[in-house]
Design a protein around this nucleic acid. Structure first.
Lengths: 109, 109
DNA sequence: ACCTGGTACACAGTAACGCTAGGTACCGCC
DNA sequence: GGCGGTACCTAGCGTTACTGTGTACCAGGT
């Protein structure tokens, strides 16, 4: 979707993935596929894996290796307490942003 | 507001400033002040100036020097046709993002 | 036996952007 | 003279998403 969406995704994609994980555990390949189905068609695989490594290093998720029927073992990510806190914070920031932008949009019209 | 809002602002701040300019011309110092009033209290001055230079180089605005009663002359930015197109594109991308996130938020609940 | 395609993960390099932390300059007022 | 407000600019940094590539495992077709 071009330059704009790439930049807008920064910071937001992390919240999106954490939200996905809050509903149920998942692994990288699966997350990528789900997001592409949901409209993020141009999302790069490497982006998701890099993001998952980051949230793991920050201690927002629990990680478990699970054998797969096809292909190499999956790294299944589960949101932990710290991750849930972080996610709450994310939604608060997101709400702030949307409120500001909604207001601006009306005034600008 | 911390790390999250900094990352989330990427790409969005540009749209915010362009929207401000769409309602009426403005200069850097003024834009910074207005945004701070509107809740972006931690917004760095340098960030706005850098952004203004970028949108000028991309040809989204018209620039004019105007003498000020106090301090150095102001660089007044006016949105041009190209900028308005770009802004339309911005709102389209923004709408896409908010729709996805609203959907996710409901499903996650 | 070979090869394609799907599954699954990882990494080095690049570009973009907001922030930090400074600096310059002009003015009015005490 | 010094201070605070106005107004602009810049170099360097950290974070993040994308590109491109590589590894590895398995099933199916020819």
């Amino acid at each position: 979707m071009g330059r704009q969406s790439t930049e807008m995704l920064k910071g937001v994609l992390e919240g999106i993935v954490l939200t996905l994980l809050s509903s149920r555990p998942a692994y990288g390949y699966e997350i990528t596929a789900r997001l592409r189905d949901q409209g993020f068609t141009d999302l790069a695989e490497g982006t998701v894996y890099a993001l998952l490594i980051r949230i793991e290093q920050r201690g927002l998720v629990h990680v478990e290796k699970v054998a797969s029927e096809k292909g190499p073992p999956r790294k299944v990510f589960t949101l932990n307490a710290h991750g849930r806190e972080y996610l709450t914070e994310f939604w608060r920031t997101w709400s702030f942003l949307t409120e500001r932008l909604d207001q601006l949009r009306e005034e600008g019209a």
